[in-house]
Design a protein around this nucleic acid. Structure first.
Lengths: 235, 235
DNA sequence: GACAAAAGCTGATCTTTATCAGTTTTTTAA
DNA sequence: TTAAAAAACTGATAAAGATCAGCTTTTGTC
């Protein structure tokens, strides 16, 4: 079951993947000329809010949460990034410290690209530059959406949206069309939707009773995306 | 009383003003060569979410709210922009429709700049291009902050932050250092902080009892910024 | 300046969601 | 394989905040 027509998934995803596609072979080679690949285990922190950036990261495989932790140690997930997405470029471009933290939510393989190579390719490739502007502008759409939903919708609707968004991210891997399996903790889900962890569990039970999801330990299978979209009450 | 040292106001403001500063006289002249100035009265809509952009807007004077209205007609204010700030560029750069709406919250004078002039200057001025990338990247900081605060903090803390942010925006006009007067409706305040309008009124009463603010009709005077910052519980 | 409309305000009640204090199940790693 | 740790889950309670209905004051316009 595809989302097309029933849910505007584009408004929930960043588009940094498309940036790499516009690079010539030569420019791509330059970009990755000094890359260093690194394995991150589930839970490992990739960078931490407030530290000084020295480059950007390209996710080769795995999944990464971008999040902020406030002074009461409450965590809010801002975005979940997957394969071929870039992270860490905001800090480099704004010439500020990292505005958020990043951590692997599953075992991940990630390339580090030094700042200089990124900036150099950015200067040499007008197409890359244009795509970057486009990607950054699109991010406003995604984040404004999140703000509006988190501020105005019920816990149940927010959870439904989080599940829809995650389903799309977990689809590619075990790419059956129906029944996508999410491998994400209840806590991360809670921190994504801005709900207490206990209530995520209770809401999942409701969704399960309605035949929308099934659970097996920590794993969540999305069984009925159409009804999940209806639950999200988001058009 | 300045905020410096006690509140990170930079994390709550966009930086499009600085973009104009890097333009040579020639490039600036080109940018505004076909501008048309227009007066908007308080409440007037400047552009509406979902419509196709044909240019960007430069706020000459006044204040503009950027907001989203959901399917239950609940409004969420994403950002409040003031003099010398640009709006509407996201849609142009992402080649999408407007991701949010914009309306004047006080009488405003606004220049419309056609898309072509904006794009043309963008191509001709590398400095402008760099500043734009910087401004867009910085927006991530601002919006991620908003998400985290709206999802995780109490109504009282959110209102305190909204008042601090607005104080900065209303300061320039009647630029006494102490006692800034905000001219904003309870409803807009509620839609900014993601609180019911009735509760904004009750919380303002509390703040008043503590000597932090005073009210006179719709007008809100910020009397004690230090205690307001303490109330926000945000470091 | 009078009048209508809009905005501000109040108290009572209801709903949603968080918090707390556990128990049970699953996962991890020795 | 198994023990320890972590995560998932449950029920009870508390708290925060929304909603509702009505009243009062302010604002804007003729």
């Amino acid at each position: 079951m595809s989302l097309s027509g029933i849910f505007p998934i584009d408004r929930w995803n960043f588009t940094t993947q498309s940036m790499l596609n516009v690079l010539s072979e030569e420019h791509y080679a330059e970009l990755v000329s000094h890359q260093s690949e690194q394995k991150f285990r589930k839970g490992d922190v990739i960078f931490r809010e407030g530290s000084v950036p020295s480059g950007i990261f390209l996710i080769r495989s795995g999944k990464v949460k971008k999040y902020k932790v406030d002074n009461l140690f409450k965590e809010q997930i801002i975005y979940v990034a997957g394969p071929n997405e870039l992270i860490g470029y905001h800090a480099v471009l704004s010439e500020e410290r990292y505005p958020d933290s990043a951590a692997a939510i599953e075992d991940s393989l990630i390339s580090f690209i030094p700042q200089d190579d990124f900036i150099s390719v950015l200067h040499r490739s007008p197409a890359f530059n244009r795509r970057l502007l486009k990607a950054l502008s699109h991010e406003f759409t995604v984040l404004a959406n999140s703000i509006s939903v988190i501020a105005q919708r019920t816990a149940s609707e927010r959870l439904a949206i989080a599940l829809i968004v995650l389903r799309e991210k977990y689809k590619e891997a075990g790419s059956e069309e129906n029944e996508v399996i999410l491998n994400i903790s209840r806590m991360d889900l809670a921190n994504m939707a801005g709900i207490a962890q206990e209530n995520v569990i209770r809401l999942l039970k409701e969704f399960k009773a309605e035949g929308i999801v099934e659970t097996d330990g920590r794993k969540i299978s999305i069984m009925d995306i159409q009804r999940l979209v209806k639950k999200s009450n988001y058009h």
